[in-house]
Design a protein around this nucleic acid. Structure first.
Lengths: 235, 235
DNA sequence: TTAAAACCTTGACGCGCATCAAGATTCAAT
DNA sequence: ATTGAATCTTGATGCGCGTCAAGGTTTTAA
């Protein structure tokens, strides 16, 4: 909840940073060097300390924000103060898009999990580039369809599966994504619980059950060795 | 689960139908008559009887499908056979987009709620038009951000709110959307329950409670008169 | 018009999981 | 390294809501 720290003054390194940021983002990385320079000029860079709020639900959106360094979480709050973690962003990911096409206020919160550097571009500028370089739109459409798919699966999973199944499915997903048996949870149990629509206590208990059953081994806090994926998914 | 009934033979009326379909769809309706004709030529029309399955999860996607007449529902099935209604489409809405950008299989089911007429366009053709007419992409991006927003709100609501709150919020949404006190539920209690992540029994009970409290009146099956919106939302 | 099928309602019951609480472990900052 | 704060674990308890069941109502199709 502290103020954000704009750092748009150290000219040279700053332009360099913004360039390397744009160059690595999937929605822009097909452009020529010249086209990219044109885009880089329209961006600003901002950095945030760990724990800082990047944006609030209810305030007008700043525009498109591309993560250059660090990780941040997007979450929602219910009226009773419960939190749901929507997604975690890392370098190359972007946010702020919802208000890009429907001039509105943020509907979620963004908070830095680590020191974060961001490139920002306003709504009008992005729309201009979308019309000028149609391929960017296609890349964004691809990104959005993938997010939509994930979000709908998430919703279906919370609506239809038990907590146990959801946790097991999460472990399976992570095993596949990280393509290793020894997975590293990308977040705390509390955040994991809020992502899966349950409580930290229940996550602890279920993981303990999985361990008792011999399906996983917990090493330190964030490390889990998956021993029997099939058994997990059947349960 | 019956076969679909292709009707691509009655030339004249068919082209007419497809044209009026394309002309009324938000993602295309900004085009000139000539551009529209170009698009219409690439489409096929298909019709389905009530109850027919339009597509199955697991089978490869046919491409973009635009609803011209009638209503259909998109739903998912859990591994245990539970159903979640994702959304209901009416004239002007489209589906089949998820696989458009990620050459994959359907992840949900589509079923006709009434006799339905559809205009279909394949993946390659659409991509071609998206590059040729960038404004179409912008319209699709707008549509997708709106769907993504709804889907994330849906997921948050199921994860964080009680069934009672969800039902109350649904009634409030419908009151606003239909801008009347006497709302018409667009689906059966069973489908409503599956949409809200609960059971028909619980929906019945909660609506009865709301009625006892004097907040709503139920008239016939699909009609509900909302008497006290504020009370509903506080509860 | 009529009969069957689908849908809705209400009751009784039980379980999954949230909640509250208290102690143990780990992390972070000085 | 040390201490306080945050996180995690484990237990006890209670209730929201899913499930099963049975009867009533509406819709559908012939």
């Amino acid at each position: 909840m502290t103020e954000h720290n704009s750092c748009g003054h150290e000219a040279a390194s700053n332009v360099e940073m913004r360039h390397s940021c744009i160059a690595t983002v999937p929605i822009f990385n097909h452009l020529t060097a010249e086209e990219m320079n044109e885009i880089v000029k329209t961006t600003n860079s901002v950095s945030y300390a760990k724990g800082e709020t990047i944006y609030h639900a209810g305030e007008p959106s700043i525009g498109l924000q591309i993560v250059h360094k660090g990780r941040l979480k997007i979450y929602r709050l219910s009226e009773t103060g419960k939190e749901q973690l929507v997604r975690i962003l890392g370098p190359g990911d972007f946010t702020g898009e919802l208000s890009l096409f429907s001039e509105s206020v943020n509907d979620a919160y963004a908070e830095a999990l680590e020191p974060v550097e961001i490139c920002a571009m306003n709504r009008e500028t992005l729309q201009q580039f979308l019309l000028k370089y149609p391929a960017i739109s296609l890349k964004m459409l691809t990104e959005f369809t993938s997010r939509l798919l994930k979000s709908e699966q998430q919703s279906a999973s919370i609506a239809m599966e038990t907590v146990e199944t959801r946790i097991a499915m999460y472990l399976a997903d992570q095993t596949e994504e990280q393509s290793t048996q020894l997975i590293t949870l990308p977040m705390t149990r509390k955040d994991l619980a809020s992502h899966l629509g349950t409580t930290p206590e229940t996550v602890s208990r279920k993981l303990a059950e999985f361990e008792d059953a011999g399906w996983i081994e917990q090493e330190r806090r964030r490390k889990i060795r998956v021993l029997d994926l099939d058994a997990l998914l059947v349960a």
